[in-house]
């Protein structure tokens, strides 16, 4: 699916020095994005690192076919497709949910109020709990700040589908948050 079927095969040659240097300049600066997206796909920091590493190396193998389009969506598309190939290895998705929650809890948050931190934990947990199909579109839009057109490219979908999926995703997130806050009653009633 996606990139792996419609893109050229890797040419099988080891990338030369110049290619690697160009790759460092063009693609490597987007490692943070790749890892961020990977984290929300895999919902586990260790799997996310494996996914990001595998994606970067795959990107290098396909870099000869890179034609100067925008590098970040190009890389994110590879992350998405690599995850499709890898996810069976990490089939135990459900037990990763707590990890995301804990990870956000442990994140660097020195200047923020406890209430703000608490709210972010709920938001992160709610996002992590969403089905992959709506989760990925939200992450690409709100966290990676991609346009509809770029998201359409990453997910290999028509723009109209991106738009309707995003609307559905926001509704689901709101419902998920209401459920969590209702259940735990943390007084964030202004949501």
């Amino acid at each position: 699916m996606g990139l792996m079927s419609d893109a050229p095969e890797p040419d099988g040659r080891t990338p030369d020095n110049r290619t690697v240097e160009r790759f460092r300049i063009v693609v490597l600066p987007h490692l943070d994005s790749a890892y961020g997206f990977a984290r929300w796909l895999a919902r586990d920091p260790v799997a996310a690192q494996d996914l990001a590493q595998e994606s970067l190396l795959r990107a290098l193998r396909y870099f000869h076919a890179f034609r100067g389009e925008e590098a970040r969506p190009w890389l994110l598309r590879i992350v998405r497709n690599t995850w499709t190939d890898m996810r069976t290895r990490y089939a135990a998705e459900s037990e990763s949910l707590e990890t995301v929650e804990n990870q956000v809890a442990a994140g660097p948050d020195p200047e923020q109020s406890a209430e703000a931190g608490e709210r972010r934990r709920h938001v992160a947990a709610a996002l992590a709990a969403l089905p992959a199909e709506v989760r990925e579109v939200l992450v690409l839009r709100e966290i990676e700040d991609l346009s509809y057109k770029q998201i359409a490219g990453v997910l290999d979908l028509p723009i109209g589908t991106v738009m309707s999926r995003l609307a559905r995703a926001r509704e689901k997130l709101a419902a998920e948050l209401r459920g969590r806050l209702g259940r735990r009653d943390h007084g964030l009633s202004d949501l």
Binding site: Y35, V104, V123, L173, L191
Partner: peptide, 15 residues
């Protein structure tokens, strides 16, 4: 509101 909440999540740079 949903958009704002997600954008308020802390960035998580590559380790």
């Amino acid at each position: 509101t949903m958009s704002g909440l997600l954008r308020g999540l802390p960035a998580d740079p590559a380790p």
